[in-house]
Design a protein around this nucleic acid. Structure first.
Lengths: 211, 211
DNA sequence: ATTATCTATAGATCTATAGATAATGC
DNA sequence: ATTATCTATAGATCTATAGATAATGC
């Protein structure tokens, strides 16, 4: 227990005006969850600090006790969305027994699962126009590393090894584009079962790769 | 000349406060161009009516002489972006001499050219979260028709004809996802020459289709 | 005493309307 | 007279801070 407030015991500080059953999350996590829902559905700029705070169960001003504003929430969410994919990519790059094609397939499948899984369409955050801002350089760096892992795995396959450098770049872009494109597919039909879709996308990715 | 004000002749009405060389566009077209640039770079919600109007060369209030507000501008832009693709799709569906695979390839290529061509990344409008609103049902209808054209062309190929209905839907989604995904690829590298990229994407699309 | 929350609000927007003005057209 | 624009602004936000309050902890 402690900082997370996991147990229902009375907490220090003035009680919230809007009493609700304990979510089990820390206030910051409640804010992040609320921001995730609102940013993905309504967009970042259209979401007010009031909307985030009240969905999280507190008043607008109380939010500032935990975060400096909306930007910080988006930055946090973005990084937390790519990080698991990158972890997976690093493990697959380190694996030197499984054939490269199989590892690439697995990276694609996992990435699609992560982009489309979860309660909210977190992958949808990638699509927000605000994300291009300098402020989110951290996210872009992590994402670039992920894309490079795709490139390396592709280059390690027989088909990829035969490509000229510029051809390899183009294939990588198409491959990465297909994977990120699933965010759009998922958005237009969120009910589709994710596992089968992730496998089908990984199959398609290898066909693009020329394997 | 006339409504477009194409010639530089003096026009009726109070002169604009900010004098500029004649753009050759009608005021409404100037507003649409300004909105396209701002919506695609900063996002819809983050763009103010003032920003649109001043980029178009007029004062904020003058905009209301031509449009009812931002929504109308976005609705117009969205429809004008899909319409050319749909025109192309209809022509290809009507063509009963060219093999279906070739027509599908051509649809993919043209669509990518249209999504990535043009001055601003107009395809980027598809990514705006606001676009899902009921207000833009017209756009969604046109886009659904376009997707259906992909499905029909795919079904008409030898590979597509062999697929069960649910398999065909899945392939169509992946195909359409790849094409719309190029918006993301284009956004992350807008300098890439479009023609070669469009052909490479069309090749990749046929590989996904299983042709 | 410490803490988490609250209420209240100043200052900065942003939208959309009202009414004035500076051109051309007749 | 008609038109396209302008200036001015009311009303509605929205953000971020200041200061009050209601809990627990010691």
């Amino acid at each position: 227990m402690g900082a997370t407030g996991a147990t229902g015991g009375r907490r220090v500080g003035r009680p919230r005006a809007d009493q609700r059953p304990d979510s089990g999350l820390s206030p910051r996590a409640e804010l992040l969850a609320a921001a995730a829902e609102l940013f993905t559905t309504r967009g970042y700029a259209a979401t007010t600090t009031r909307a985030v705070a009240e969905l999280a169960g507190m008043r607008q001003a109380s939010m500032y006790h935990y975060v400096s504003g909306k930007e910080e929430l988006l930055a946090d969410l973005l990084e937390s969305t790519v990080t698991p994919s990158l972890t997976c990519a690093r493990e697959l790059l380190a694996d030197d027994v499984t054939p490269a094609g199989d590892r690439l397939w697995e990276l694609c499948r996992t990435d699609v699962e992560l982009l489309c899984g979860g309660t909210h369409n977190l992958g949808g955050l990638y699509l927000l126009p605000e994300v291009r801002a300098e402020r989110f350089a951290g996210f872009h760096a992590v994402r670039a590393e992920l894309k490079d892992a795709y490139r390396q795995l592709l280059a390690a396959t027989a088909a990829g090894g035969a490509l000229a450098k510029s051809e390899l770049e183009l294939r990588t872009d198409l491959l990465f584009g297909l994977i990120e494109g699933v965010i759009l597919v998922h958005r237009s039909d969120p009910e589709r079962p994710v596992s089968a879709f992730a496998e089908a996308t990984a199959d398609a990715a290898l066909r693009i790769a020329g394997i």
